[in-house]
Design a protein around this nucleic acid. Structure first.
Length: 950
RNA sequence: GCCCUCGUAGCCCAACCGGUAGAGGCAACGGACUCAAAACCCGUCCAGUGUGGGUUCGAAUCCCACCGAGGGCACCA
């Protein structure tokens, strides 16, 4: 008996044979090697020298132990399709994939097992590489880098030293080498920047150590003793971006506390304005730009000084126009002037609510400060918006009214923003209103609200009242006037502040880049000389930092590296003879390696530079004066909106300032891929159960006989709904899997994973195959006759050219779902016309080439069976003949008063007059127009005619 | 509370600068093939675009309000 399935039908079994074979051939022939203009990867450059370039990138993954799930390839396949399309479209394409391989999971595994995190990480990386290969990626494997490779982190450390070795020249508005600063300070051309010279003694009189401190305080990478986010549960400090809104670590969900510690900071705030302004140059989703704008949080206003017996308190306000309504001041509990201001005794007649029951202000303030410091962000929130605070016993003078107003300490004012002190204007600020009500403080309106306003604080527009010389002025005019007045009288100045804080850059962990820094006996930091990089991670017995109970806010951080005693002490000659130095025992945060990997992709094995400037210019350089340069397409998840994407922009700008790169931005165009959501099931208690073991009965779902509730959510371990690409590839082949992932919707959109719908794409590939290949013999069905003798009819030919046009458009705009729909349409037509007899090459070849970016293995196989020796990866993508895009005639709509009444067929190039007369000739239209006055006729060529009657 | 994105057939999705709401797939149904079933092939069905207003000759598309889903921020002075 003959087998039920023809021997050469396309299916999973055949995919399992041809896919590895093509992957092998691509690798053997180095089909996807992208040549550089110079350097180690320059061979073959002459062949592509004249081509336009595309640098296409994915956000590289952390290689976790679970391997890829179906969510990952959505982005990876899309860049692969785009890269393959652009290669066929005449570009030379840089596409590769690396690994962001430092990180906590491997370290925690190492802590548990005692095995070096590198062992597990490298094993995971090789699993990922194999999975990516099975997906048929067109990566250039020579460029695949991993952040844990010493040859990579050597340059991460080098970039850190560039930050350490430079300062921000505000006048030049760029970073410059620290050596320039020294020259200018020594020459007296420059004074130390504000806040860098606490003693304020002139530069020439400073000791060497003090000069070192002044210089260190200018650096873009600097050590700073300040309140930081301390996470006892992780035994490390965290950056602001790594702490969630409810005061927990993003990783591990441990409580985070504020406490002062000496840590490395990166001066990202120096770049606030440029990070903000250059967003306008980027082709990024608006939502991401907006999130970055909000995170940077630029606001304009004024600093105003309020006099006290112990000096002026400077506040920041965005509403200087309301200063006449400032009825009290509030300092953050950590504000440095709190101690000096706090009075020795309560003034007469102080309300009981201001003293918190304490006998003296000092006791009340100290108690309040202690409570505030112990209070995590989470506690603050669970307490609701109840305002708390305590009176310092001191008064300040409102410079506008001359009146004495009380000074409070309250935790609704944050030390980290503005000056850590505010003027409270309850009439125009709801927070101040709430506090004023709680403490019986006077509330004055200084902006007249509308008559029907029945709220509390009024923040809208309106004329100033009760504000002396400002009365009658609208808010903006009043701001201008009061700032003039403040400046003239020495009470203040206009100011810009940012929410963005400097980046806390050290972690007390093991599995990260060591700092290339040593300390001398004075505790002064020194750069490890370039020739001694990388500073390698030492082997240790215990990979864990010392952790503490959640509530422990005083434990001293103890890093794993500090226990590598042989490593910590080092003999070096840094210019003062051989001396003993102590190494920095922190490591860099996880984000460091991902801040610059695009540059390393471009020049992966350069051992004299992070990236050769000529190679950077070639792949990433600006194309014209308005172009910021950077990677042509960067695809990744929206969850990195303010972390990775802001940090990477910052590093890139530093390298730009120092002349190492020609591009101002790392990523010219960014696209966020949507999430793949997959069915997840929860039982009666609300716990998730393994989705793969749930069975469906009609519209209900059961897990081991118990009813469960279906919902959709992000694929992952927590919802127990992981679907692996491996399983999909085994069942259908990688080509079907790729096609399905691209078909379900536009890239940016989240979509549910529907295992049933995959079969549609499977059938499509089978149909295309059957069009081109004889299922029983495996021979090509495609005729090779000349176009003149082709049996392709005009309709089909026109359809093909329209298809080419539409498919190209879909590839260009990353709307691959529409490309697939058009390919399907053409394939269906070919099935209809040519299912018996031969398939004309005139249509078969473009069909296969158009499919190739999406499903490259089967396309290569068909192409090869059609008699082509060469891979189609570099074959020119079909081009539509513009003359064949339209049809000869077109059906247009005829509307009367906007209502569709008839359709008529006209020549596709018919002008308005011709269209109108054709429409009038249509009997149903004639009937409609009979007896009516036609006021206006609107004719849109190729679309419609609309008679406006009445 | 504020901000952003999105609501089109039973489901996933198309629809260019406002111009006849439908390209494609899934599911369903019918047919063909088969001893039968699966697979494959052919065909059919299905919405007036979340709701209510507005602008316009004409609105899925632009504007306003509301409802729903997802995401971000959240005492930022």
């Amino acid at each position: 008996m003959a087998p039920a399935v023809p021997a050469y039908r396309y299916g999973a079994a055949m995919a399992a044979v041809i896919e590895p074979a093509w992957q092998q051939r691509w690798a053997d022939e180095a089909v996807f090697a992208a040549p550089n203009p110079v350097g180690s990867l320059s061979s073959g450059f002459d062949a592509v020298a004249g081509r336009p370039k595309k640098f296409v990138m994915d956000m590289f993954p952390y290689p976790s132990g679970e391997g890829l799930h179906v969510g990952h390839p959505l982005g990876y396949v899309s860049t692969d399709v785009y890269a393959r399309y652009q290669r066929m479209n005449g570009h030379t394409v840089l596409h590769t994939m690396g690994f962001d391989a430092f990180g906590l999971p491997a370290e925690q595994h190492a802590v548990e097992t005692g095995r070096h995190p590198r062992t597990l990480t490298e094993r995971n990386i090789s699993i990922y590489r194999e999975q990516l290969r099975q997906l048929g990626m067109d990566h250039d494997p020579r460029r695949s880098v991993s952040t844990i490779d010493p040859s990579y982190y050597r340059w991460t450390q080098w970039i850190f030293l560039q930050l350490f070795g430079s300062w921000y020249d505000v006048d030049a508005d760029r970073a410059r080498p620290i050596a320039d600063l020294l020259v200018e300070l020594d020459a007296g051309e420059r004074e130390p920047a504000e806040g860098t010279n606490p003693g304020r003694r002139p530069w020439p009189q400073l000791s060497d150590v003090d000069r070192g401190r002044v210089v260190d305080a200018h650096r873009l990478a600097y050590l700073h003793q300040a309140p930081v986010n301390w996470c006892p549960g992780l035994g490390t400090v965290l950056s602001n971006e790594e702490v969630t809104a409810d005061g927990r670590s993003e990783r591990g969900n441990f409580p985070v506390f504020r406490r002062p510690l000496r840590q490395w900071m990166l001066r990202i705030t120096a770049y606030s304005d440029r990070l903000l302004a250059d967003l306008d140059l980027l082709d990024w989703p608006d939502s991401i730009k907006l999130q970055q704008r909000n995170w940077i949080g630029r606001s304009t206003g004024a600093y105003i000084a309020f006099g006290t017996d112990h000096g002026g308190i400077e506040v920041f306000t965005t509403r200087p126009d309301t200063v006449f309504g400032a009825t009290y001041l509030v300092l953050a509990p950590e504000h440095p002037m709190v101690g000096a201001l706090t009075a020795t005794a309560w003034p007469d007649g102080v309300p009981a609510s201001w003293t918190d029951g304490a006998a003296r202000p000092g006791e009340a303030v100290a108690a309040y400060q202690l409570t505030a410091s112990r209070r995590s962000e989470l506690d603050r929130q669970t307490e609701g918006r109840e305002k708390t605070g305590v009176f310092t016993g001191a008064y300040a003078h409102n410079p506008a009214t001359g009146r004495a107003i009380p000074v409070f300490v309250a935790d609704y004012v944050l030390m980290g923003y503005g000056t850590g002190a505010i003027m409270a204007v309850p009439g125009q600020d709801q927070r101040d209103w709430d506090f004023a009500e709680a403490f019986d403080l006077p509330i004055l309106r200084t902006v007249a609200p509308p008559e029907d306003f029945d709220g509390q604080a009024y923040t809208g527009a309106g004329p100033a009242i009760g504000s002396g010389f400002l009365n009658g002025l609208e808010v903006d005019a009043a701001k201008v006037r009061i700032i003039e007045w403040l400046v003239r009288n020495g009470h203040g100045r206009s100011a810009v502040t940012y929410k963005l804080r400097d980046w806390l850059f050290s972690r007390q962990r093991y599995w990260g880049e060591p700092f290339p820094i040593v300390y001398d006996d004075d505790g002064m930091p020194h750069a490890v000389p370039d020739g001694l990089l990388p500073v390698s991670l030492p082997d240790v017995d215990d990979y864990s930092p010392r952790t503490f109970p959640d509530g422990d806010v005083t434990g001293e951080p103890e890093t794993p590296l500090s226990r590598a005693t042989d490593w910590v002490t080092v003999e070096l000659d840094l210019g003062a003879g051989v001396r003993s130095y102590r190494r920095d025992t922190n490591t860099m945060p996880n984000w460091a390696g991902s801040c610059w990997y695009e540059l390393r992709y471009a020049d992966p094995d350069n051992d004299t530079a992070a990236c050769d400037p000529e190679i950077e210019r070639y792949w990433m350089g600006p194309r014209d004066d308005n172009d910021c340069g950077g990677v042509d397409l960067y695809v990744g998840g929206a969850e990195h909106a303010v972390l990775h994407l802001l940090y990477a922009r910052f590093w890139h700008k530093v390298l730009f300032d120092l002349g190492y790169v020609s591009s101002r931005e790392p990523f010219r165009k960014l696209v966020n891929q949507g999430m793949i959501q997959s069915p997840a099931y929860a039982d009666a208690r609300g716990f998730y159960v393994e989705a793969s073991e749930v069975e469906r009965r009609g519209t209900e779902f059961f897990f081991h006989g118990e009813p469960v509730r279906q919902e959709f959510g992000k694929v992952g371990k927590s919802l127990k709904n992981v679907i692996t690409p491996d399983a999909m590839i085994a069942k259908y082949g990688a080509d079907t899997f790729r096609l399905y992932e691209m078909f379900t919707g536009p890239l940016e959109q989240s979509r549910p994973w529907d295992p049933q719908a995959v079969s549609g794409m499977y059938r499509l590939l089978q149909r295309i195959w059957r069009n081109v290949i004889d299922e029983t013999t495996g021979e090509s069905r495609v005729s090779t006759v000349d176009r003149e003798a082709s049996t392709v009819d005009d309709d089909t030919r026109r359809l093909m050219h329209r298809t080419i046009d539409a498919v190209r458009d879909g590839y260009e705009t990353l709307r691959f779902n529409t490309s697939i729909a058009r390919i399907t349409e053409l394939s269906n037509r070919l099935t209809q016309r040519f299912s018996s007899g031969v398939m004309p090459a005139e249509v078969a070849e473009p069909l296969v080439l158009m499919l190739a970016p999406l499903s490259p293995h089967v396309a290569e196989e068909m192409w090869s069976r059609m008699g082509h020796q060469e891979s189609l990866a570099w074959r020119a993508f079909p081009v539509a003949d513009p003359d064949l895009l339209g049809s000869e005639t077109v059906q247009i709509a005829v509307q009367v008063n906007g209502k569709l009444r008839a359709t008529v067929t006209v020549a596709s190039d018919a002008n308005a007059t011709a269209m109108e007369s054709a429409a009038r000739a249509e009997p149903r239209v004639t009937a409609q127009l009979d007896g009516a006055t036609v006021r206006k006729v609107i004719a849109v060529p190729g679309r419609l005619v609309n008679f406006v009657v009445g």
